[in-house]
Structures are given as structure tokens and as C-alpha cells.
Design a protein around this nucleic acid. Structure first.
Lengths: 226, 226
DNA sequence: GCAAAAGTGTTATCGCTACACCCATGG
DNA sequence: CCATGGGTGTAGCGATAACACTTTTGC
């Protein structure tokens, strides 16, 4: 006796992933959106997402989606929250594991993205109303990113390997949306000993060249930063 | 959980929930475990869990599991993390949304739990090796709970509505695993103005009766507590 | 009156905030 | 030599940590 009735495609919930991919462009935080082709969301924007394959782990699925849909393979990826409201997807019963992804500004140009295409970077302040529950996912991702700035070194994933102290500070200011004091900012960073000098300098600017630093820790570490 | 025979019947991943239910008993943090009946985990302990129904939201599923399997309906519930390692469940491809649940010690006796049954409270320090990836889920739940003590009023969900300051402090000490200073602890609580007096006292003890307090905020609020 | 937990302030230290001027380079 | 951002220290203040004795009750 089998109970598996086939009046629906599948007796269980379908699992998907959605990725909120952030970067900083022109000193503004941006999120990557794609224009939907299918009804009922035709013309709406949404974050990249897709179904999880049967033998695929959700984080691997998120990586794959980023690669297939946006051509990006190097983003930092972190699970955010699982969104399961009934009715969040009009196509069926889909529960989605949301991810946050971060990309250094320098990498942005390499992706398969253009100004006028169906894949586009939006300043987070100017994001239109999104398909599915992607407004909620984006909002959740933003708060988490902001919260984690203060107690981890997550900001490293928005910068190239080497950066000046001003660039680092600017990154905090852009994401948090407020100014920081230059001297206090540096004092704290050095007190925590998070950075190391590279010995190099940022040349070719018409002012005093800034020292370049990098993070000591390779991975994400939990340290009170702000 | 589902049998192996169904493994390939469904094109997609199967979704489940697992709940790490905590309470404090005898000044020790405990977690609720159930003894498994089926191979290959026969005899192993696991946290309560089960499949998410097609039109059920994961948090509703978690509530239902707690009710059906443990007879508990009042726990505070919070999504923890989604665990999707391939092979985490030998019965098939199951991804599980993990939840943390908290219960005031006072409620514990009312649940369908006994000392020797198949449902039992374990001190977290004495939890055996668990079925599935439940070791990992438990560990994740514990860290989150400890972290949230410091910056939310989540501790309220481990206490009855009215409590003495010493009981509150003991709760922090038990979960964090370290002693706190009585005077400093009270000073901070009053500075944050999180509590209100009830006017009542804890009677029937052979010492000076303590004042009873309750939290001002009904729900969870984000406040630096420690 | 004795055992047991409740309740209560002060001091020293540390970390945070606010704030302004000289320096090195490119053009 | 000028414009531009880079780099540096200190003083005041608020928060934290350490610490011990008196009070109130039940028995």
C-alpha cells in the first residue's frame, strides 16, 4: 500500500534558494536583481534564485545559481534565513533558503551584468517592489549585514585583498549609513590588531599615497570591530 | 521519517524541521531528546523533528511536532538555521529547518515527559552522541542562545512571568556557565529599565522574602543586557 | 538567636568620544 | 606652490568591575 498520491507533482514541499548579492559601487551599497520573464511577475525584478537539485546542498545550489545566472563564482556566501510563508510563490509550494552574498567592488565588472540588461545592480535605497517575498528577504539580508559589520570582519568580503584605511572606513560608512571618526576608527582597528601592513602604497593619486593593508585572518572571525 | 523506497519517487528535496527545546532544571540547562525506534538509529537519541506538510509553514510544523511528540504547546520558538548536508539523513534526501525552543522550568512537569520514558530531558553537558546531524544542530542552538542572552531579553522565555532578581541572575549564570556580580547585574538591569515591580514577594522561604519582578516588554526586544 | 538569602554604594580603571593640524604626493 | 587626501594624540566623560556588610524572614 502506498500513500503517495500523484494528484500534485510531489507530495512534499519544494526547496529553493534565493541570493541577496551585495556590493558597493560609487560609495553606495548595491544589490543585484534580475528581471522576471514569466507571469505573474513578468517585468518585476527579483534576486537570483532557483530550485535545489535532489542531491545538492543548499549552499552549493546558491553557488550554482550565482554562476549560472550571473556568471559570478567568487562571492562570499552565507546562509541568511529560511522563508516559508504559504503563498510566497504563486507557482507552487516553495520554501526558500535565503543567502547573503558579498562581492568586492573590483570584481563587479567581470560579471555578466550590464546597465540595461535583465541583470542589474540597484542601489539598495532605490530598489523597486520585488517579486515573491524578495522584499522581505532583502530587508532581512540588509539588517544582518549591518549587524555583522560590528562584531565580525565580514567587511573584508566587500574589499579587494589590499586596501587603504580610508577605503575600509568608507565601506563601513556606506553600509551603516553614517559617518565615523577617522582617528577613533583607526585606533580601534589597531587595538584589535586585525590588519597587517603590506608595505605597499596606493600610487598614482594626486595626494599623499596611502598605506595598503590586508586582514590577518583568512576567514570570517568574530571580533568586536565597532 | 520516510522510508528509503520513496527516495527517488519525488523529484525534489524533502523538507523537515527539528527542534532544540531547552529549559533549566535544577540550575542546569537541559535539552529534550527522544529515543529513536527505527534503524539505523534505533536506541539513539534525537531532538523532536518531522516532515513539513505540503501546505504548512515550517514554524507551524515545528509547533505541531512539539505538540504531537512532546505535548507542549506554549514554548517560545525561533528559527535557527537550515541544515542540508547530503547524507545527513540515511532515509533519503531531507533538508531540515532547525528551531530553538525555550520553556520556563515551571512548565516542564506538564509535558508528556518522564524520567525513564522515550522522551527525556538531558543536561546539555551530558548529551550522548545523537542521531542524524543533531549534534551539530544542538551545538548551533546553544551558541545562538548564549549569544542572544547578551543583547536581547530572550531569557524571559526561560522564566515564569514573575521572578526574583536572583532567579533571573541564576538563569544567566546557568546558560552562560559563569558567575555574575550581584550588584553590577542589578545596576545594569535597572539602568536599562527592563523590569517592573509586581509588588509581590516570594513567600514561604526560610529567609528574607525577595521582591518579584516581571519584564515590561511582552515580546522579544533587542536591548544590550549584559 | 541562628541560618539563609535579600538588598544596597563607592572607588579605580578602562574604553569611548570629540576634536585640529601637519605631511606627502601629483600636477 | 597648490590642492588633495593621509596620517597622528590627548583630555574629559561615562561605563564597567571589584568588593562587604546589614536586613529580613522562618524555624
Amino acid at each position: 500500500m502506498k500513500k503517495q498520491t500523484h494528484k500534485r507533482k510531489c507530495k512534499f514541499v519544494v526547496l529553493a534558494v534565493d541570493v541577496a548579492l551585495f556590493t558597493v559601487i560609487d560609495e553606495k551599497l548595491h544589490v543585484l536583481l534580475m528581471r522576471m520573464q514569466k507571469k505573474p511577475f513578468e517585468g518585476f525584478w527579483a534576486m537570483p534564485g532557483g530550485l535545489v537539485k535532489p542531491d545538492e546542498e543548499p549552499n552549493v545550489a546558491a553557488r550554482r545559481i550565482l554562476k549560472e545566472k550571473v556568471g559570478i563564482t567568487t562571492a562570499y556566501l552565507e546562509q541568511l534565513y529560511t522563508f516559508g510563508r504559504v503563498g510566497r510563490d504563486p507557482f507552487g509550494r516553495v520554501v526558500s533558503v535565503g543567502y547573503t552574498a558579498l562581492l568586492p567592488s573590483a570584481v563587479v565588472s567581470r560579471g555578466r551584468t550590464g546597465k540595461d540588461g535583465d541583470v542589474r545592480w540597484f542601489p539598495v535605497a532605490k530598489v523597486p517592489s520585488l517579486a515573491y517575498d524578495h522584499d522581505e528577504i532583502l530587508e532581512t539580508g540588509l539588517s544582518r549585514l549591518r549587524a555583522k559589520l560590528a562584531y565580525t570582519n565580514i567587511v573584508k568580503n566587500l574589499l579587494s585583498k589590499e586596501f587603504t584605511l580610508t577605503e575600509l572606513q568608507r565601506m563601513y560608512e556606506v553600509v551603516l549609513g553614517r559617518k565615523l571618526d577617522k582617528r577613533n576608527f583607526r585606533k580601534k582597528l589597531f587595538a584589535r590588531a586585525l590588519l597587517k601592513k603590506t608595505g605597499k602604497r596606493r600610487r598614482g593619486v594626486s595626494n599623499r599615497p596611502a598605506e595598503l593593508f590586508s586582514f590577518k585572518e583568512k576567514g570570517l572571525s568574530i571580533v568586536e570591530v565597532l
